[in-house]
Write a protein that binds this DNA or RNA. Structure first.
Lengths: 111, 111
DNA sequence: AATAACACCTAGTATAACTATGTATAATAT
DNA sequence: ATATTATACATAGTTATACTAGGTGTTATT
């Protein structure tokens, strides 16, 4: 039924690392940015994103820092760690391996 | 940690349908065939495959039929149903959509 | 005679995306 | 003025599914 939900599993960490490797970002921004860059495909819920960010931080792949805007509003900016950099490279590689295997099976049926 | 495990989620049904659409196959054969075609990448465990086959059969996407070999050994051959054909087409399309979205984010870093 | 390969099965576990809900502020609409 | 939407964070509980670990029985190989 919700194949999309399952397809996405295992890719969120890579997606998040892909974004924060370019520049530090905060949660809400990441949700919007993923939706924008994927042309509306990725619409992560907060209940998906924040736990994922906490998981990555706990694993020392990203690190968050609170920042206070002039308005007084709080944002938690995450930036990638050195360990995160290595992890991202590994995850990208794993993704490509997976993709290659999938392509071997899911050939665009010659019809 | 086990990213591979999560990556695979949501794709098994498509993989199985992809195989049985070509010819009826039985469980053990599917495991071996997926490993062969993916050049060793997919090595599904029985605890993964058989429940998946049962799930697909329950959803009326495939149908199994016991066959007895001359040796007396029993095999359950699964063939795709009409509903399975439509489902496979839909899943392939969903996979391509997902892939396109992923590619927009996981660009092979220009390095 | 013992091991590996064949061929099926399932109960329980782990993981992670999501639902639903909560808090609080700023901007916009009525 | 007031209500709604957008911004910004958080988490407890639900659901789905790949896997672990175990089981049954047959056939082929060492």
């Amino acid at each position: 039924m919700a194949q999309r939900r399952e397809l996405i599993k295992g890719t969120i960490d890579s997606l998040l690392l892909c974004l924060v490797v370019q520049q530090p970002m905060y949660g809400y921004q990441i949700i919007k940015e993923l939706e924008r860059r994927s042309q509306g495909y990725f619409k992560f819920k907060e209940g998906t994103l924040y736990p994922a960010l906490h998981r990555l931080e706990k694993a020392d792949l990203i690190q968050g820092k609170w920042q206070t805007l002039p308005s007084g509003r709080q944002r938690r900016y995450y930036h990638i760690t050195e360990k995160g950099l290595y992890s991202l490279a590994a995850k990208r590689s794993q993704w490509l391996d997976f993709l290659a295997a999938m392509n071997l099976i899911i050939q665009p049926a010659s019809d």
